[in-house]
């Protein structure tokens, strides 16, 4: 793995409820380099909350704590909102699941991208327009001039998502957190959006955190995968080895997918075990890096 962009140690997100404190994320640790890091898990596993916590987007009364949460060696844990806003966008950007809710419906797309760019670069407007056009072209929008003057409801879901990515990339962030960026898209559009993100990681050396529930997609798209269960990482594994995962939870998830090439009458059902909640992490890289004798 290349240099570490983002380092997270023992990240916890807790929400006080009537029944006591609910921990949505319970001690997550990982390092992100210039790579595509997949985070998979079921709903409620804390994968989205991890992304939000890194960006300081956990709303009160939610509390974020960590031993370490550093971006390029600088702590970004619980920064005041004003400083966090400077980091969001210029250093870390986020793409949400549904572009419909992330774009302002009454502002032209071009204006929104230029606004995003200007906020972080603080340069002249002519420059911003060029940059916006360039970004739209970078996300493979064929007619950027026309799209600049369109309103969000005038574009399709796939194009909306590409525009979101363009907007997030305008200020040239080092890290992109994509929370289920393709779940609302059709399969044919999905490939395009993924290609764009893939190229950005390769060409710009960005770090990508790709949050998804789709194991197959993550296995094919990412370099490394964290599997989350009940607020913890239960296994980290090279994406290409995902299908040989060792944790019973990961195996269970993989098996429960229907497959066209292997018809069965009944799908295997995941039997959850309480021990998974607190069992130690299965980390493939640790085992491969450390000789067995140690």
């Amino acid at each position: 793995m290349s240099e570490t962009l983002l380092s997270v140690r023992d990240l916890r997100v807790a929400f006080p409820t009537r029944q006591g404190v609910f921990e949505a994320v319970r001690g997550v640790s990982f390092d992100l380099g210039r790579e595509r890091l997949g985070v998979v898990g079921e709903s409620g596993s804390g994968k989205s909350m991890t992304g939000r916590a890194i960006l300081g987007l956990v709303r009160p009364p939610g509390k974020v704590t960590a031993d370490r949460l550093t971006l390029d060696g600088q702590s970004i844990l619980n920064l005041p909102e004003r400083k966090m806003r400077a980091i969001r966008g210029s250093h870390i950007s986020m793409v949400m699941q549904d572009p419909k809710f992330s774009l302002n419906p009454v502002v032209k797309i071009g204006d929104q991208i230029m606004e995003a760019y200007r906020l972080h670069a603080g340069r002249g407007s002519g420059n911003a327009r060029d940059k916006a056009l360039e970004m739209l072209a970078a996300v493979q929008i064929r007619d950027p001039e026309r799209v600049m003057d369109a309103y969000p409801h005038e574009v399709s879901g796939g194009m909306g998502q590409r525009i979101m990515i363009a907007m997030m990339l305008a200020p040239d962030p080092e890290i992109l957190i994509a929370d289920e960026p393709t779940s609302a898209l059709d399969v044919s559009v999905r490939t395009e959006v993924l290609n764009i993100m893939d190229r950005l990681v390769r060409d710009r050396g960005m770090g990508l955190i790709f949050i998804s529930h789709d194991l197959n997609l993550v296995a094919q798209f990412c370099d490394r995968v964290l599997i989350m269960y009940a607020g913890r990482i239960v296994e980290t594994i090279e994406a290409k080895n995902l299908h040989n995962a060792r944790h019973p939870y990961t195996q269970g998830l993989l098996n429960s997918l229907p497959r066209l090439d292997q018809p069965v009458k009944h799908l295997p059902v995941l039997e959850r075990q309480d021990s998974w909640r607190d069992a130690p992490l299965i980390d493939e890289s640790m085992e491969t890096e450390l000789p067995g004798g140690l």
Partner: peptide, 9 residues
């Protein structure tokens, strides 16, 4: 979720 999908299917 996929595991729940399997149960429902």
């Amino acid at each position: 979720d996929v595991s729940v999908q399997a149960e429902i299917l």
